[in-house]
């Protein structure tokens, strides 16, 4: 294991180099794609104020740099990026970086708790199913996970709100905390958790179903391997065979998939954040699209592409640690 550390360092450096062109392509492609949408920030602002003269429109456009030829706009944008300047939001009248940094923690907390919930429950449920494979507990759970798998996230979210927030009044309908109350200490944490339960659950349910199904299949396959028979022949208890030998191998594909999903969760978060009025990056992106606030949107896209690349790298490193057969190249 220790012998692999230099390999891992090399991998990280090389991945960072590879990331630069990838991110550049993403930025340029998105820059042009966004221009395909009808209208710009000036149109939206004018439409919302209900009245604007041509001069006012011209003024807005030249302030945001929207009157320049498109290639020049791109050049300006990339020039700013090189200086780590994400630009200025036309809509919020704030530097983009401030907007994003303000929203990042909310989304990260939501994503990571959804990921943690789905991995823990998914793996536990899948292992349980594999233990009873083909018998009724397995089949009943299979129907439930199939349901979670096929229902759209926003519908689950709305139904959870109707049931737990409106009918039972156990949990808040949305937001990330009570308004006008200073939260601190353990009680503050508990209140924050209460606000997180529904959005995190709605986001997680789909992935719970995915991991349960994958774990089930993977555990059933691993259980039939020769080394499991060897482990039992050594006199290990069923529990130790399961945790030390079966799961240790069966969870390799789950880790791979979870890594890929972490990027996808960012997309899923858009819907959930909108349903629950959760102040996160997803909702910021959505608002930016509606307002044609392209510098904000590009900033969010830049950040998410960096996150996805970093997560993929992290997954490679984790995989190398848990599966010694993987060569770090």
């Amino acid at each position: 294991m220790q012998g692999r550390l230099p390999d891992i360092a090399r991998l990280i450096v090389r991945s960072a180099f590879h990331a630069v062109p990838t991110i550049l392509v993403i930025l340029v492609a998105n820059f042009f794609l966004l221009r395909l949408a009808p209208g710009d920030a000036a149109d939206v602002i004018a439409a919302e104020s209900g009245f604007a003269t041509d001069e006012m429109m011209e003024g807005l456009r030249s302030r945001f740099g929207l009157d320049l030829p498109i290639l020049e706009q791109l050049q300006n944008y990339l020039g700013h990026i090189l200086r780590f300047d994400l630009g200025y939001s036309a809509r919020f009248n704030t530097p983009v970086i401030d907007l994003i940094l303000q929203r990042v923690p909310g989304t990260l907390i939501l994503m990571l708790s959804a990921m943690a919930i789905s991995l823990m429950i998914g793996i536990a449920v899948g292992t349980f199913q594999a233990t009873f494979a083909g018998r009724w507990p397995d089949r009943v759970i299979a129907v439930v996970t199939q349901l979670f798998y096929s229902l759209p996230g926003f519908w689950i979210g709305l139904m959870l709100i109707v049931f737990f927030a409106v009918r039972l009044r156990w949990l808040p309908t949305g937001g990330s905390g009570p308004i006008g109350v200073e939260l601190s200490g353990l009680s503050g944490l508990l209140i924050r958790l209460k606000y997180m339960v529904l959005p995190a659950t709605s986001l997680a349910l789909f992935y719970v179903a995915v991991y349960a199904r994958l774990t089930r299949a993977s555990v059933i396959e691993a259980k039939a391997q020769d080394y499991v028979r060897t482990a039992r022949a050594k006199g290990l208890s069923q529990f130790k065979v399961m945790t030390g030998h079966v799961l240790r191998n069966a969870l390799l594909p789950v880790t791979t998939l979870a890594g890929i999903h972490l990027g996808g969760l960012l997309g899923g978060a858009v819907v959930i954040e909108t349903v629950y009025a959760w102040p996160g990056l997803g909702r910021l992106a959505y608002e930016a699209v509606m307002a044609r606030d392209f510098s904000v949107l590009l900033g969010v896209l830049l950040l998410s592409s960096i996150v996805v690349i970093a997560v993929n790298l992290l997954v490679d490193v984790i995989q190398a640690f848990i599966d010694p057969r993987i060569e770090l190249k």
Partner: peptide, 30 residues
């Protein structure tokens, strides 16, 4: 009894050892 009073060797040495654990760890376990 297994592994302590009766030991067993299997036919396929390629697949009878756990691929993700060191051999030391697998012997230590017993």
């Amino acid at each position: 009894v297994r592994g302590s009073d009766i030991g067993m060797i299997f036919q396929e040495p390629m697949t009878s050892l756990n691929p993700v654990l060191t051999v030391g760890r697998q012997i230590s376990e017993v």
